[in-house]
């Protein structure tokens, strides 16, 4: 092996191996989960034969579909809001030094430092004392807040060490701060923003405790519906809806990649 090839970080041994292991690890359970959605047996973990019945049932299970819809609404709105708030904050935190910055850092991490149930119960009491009607709105507010650290930390990590370069680049171009932000800072931050957005999205999508406490009539989400199946047992209907969620996510990703591509063609 030439020195040059050895220095090529892309081809370091173990890298592809590690990533391969990672994706196998992450996708193996998902394959099984999807396979089981075609399982004729009512019992989730015993395979007996192929059927599409669970998809039919899932499509007729209004409570479950509504729960899935709620989950998607809450997760999209909360993740986007949290990402916007985090991006703004992270940019400023990287640009300037001011006293109390450590305190702001700690504050931003606050939502993940306590097991959810503690703020969840208190947030409910807070809403109740204000006379707020509980529902999707309150859930979205609460989710936005606990999504902030998940969006903020990747963005902040991205900006770390780039601060100086950013300011200089903007100065060199004699750009107005606004122009500099949209032309330079934002594009540079994108990997961080995207990471933060998807992390906030999945953390919101899977949340049970906060949603349960601050939700009201009409705001049952998929996790609450699924955990509420204790009395009668989970059926492959749940696998079917999970598979459908995967399908939605794949469609959404393909769409956005497609849109993104056509956008910069001209």
């Amino acid at each position: 092996m030439s020195r040059r090839a050895a220095g090529d970080a892309k081809r370091w041994p173990g890298l592809a191996l590690g990533a391969g292991f990672f994706f196998a690890y992450v996708y193996l359970p998902i394959l099984i989960l999807v396979a089981l959605s075609f399982n004729e047996n009512r019992v989730v973990t015993v395979w007996t034969g192929f059927t599409l019945d669970w998809y039919k049932l899932a499509f007729h299970n209004d409570a479950m579909l509504r729960a899935a819809e709620n989950s998607l609404i809450i997760a999209s709105v909360a993740a986007v809001s949290a990402t916007i708030l985090s991006t703004l904050a992270a940019v400023r935190m990287a640009q300037v030094r001011f006293t109390g910055q450590t305190a702001v850092n700690a504050l931003v991490a606050l939502p993940i430092t306590v097991p959810e149930i503690v703020p969840a119960v208190a947030t409910l009491m807070f809403f109740a004392s204000l006379g707020v009607t509980l529902g999707l709105g309150t859930v979205i507010l609460a989710h936005t807040v606990f999504c902030i650290p998940f969006a903020y930390l990747p963005i902040r990590a991205r900006l770390e060490g780039m601060d100086r370069a950013l300011a200089e680049a903007a100065g060199d171009l004699y750009a107005s701060p606004r122009r500099a932000f949209f032309k330079i800072t934002l594009p540079l931050m994108m990997p961080g923003i995207l990471s933060g957005l998807v992390l906030a999205f999945i953390i919101s999508l899977d949340d049970f405790v906060t949603t349960f406490f601050v939700g009201g009539a009409g705001s049952t989400t998929l996790p609450i519906y699924i955990f509420g199946l204790v009395r009668t047992g989970v059926t492959p209907e749940v696998n079917a809806i999970s598979a459908l969620m995967l399908l939605i996510s794949i469609a959404l990703v393909s769409l956005s990649l497609f849109l993104g591509r056509s956008e910069h063609r001209y």
Binding site: V198, L222, S249, I250
Partner: peptide
């Protein structure tokens, strides 16, 4: 890269309980 970012989080569009059941099975 963008595609990989999504691929990392895709499995987590499913539910925690169901993912754990899959692990029980494995």
């Amino acid at each position: 890269r963008t595609l990989l970012v999504f691929m990392v989080t895709l499995p987590f569009w499913t539910n925690l309980l169901v993912r754990n059941y899959a692990w029980i099975l494995i």
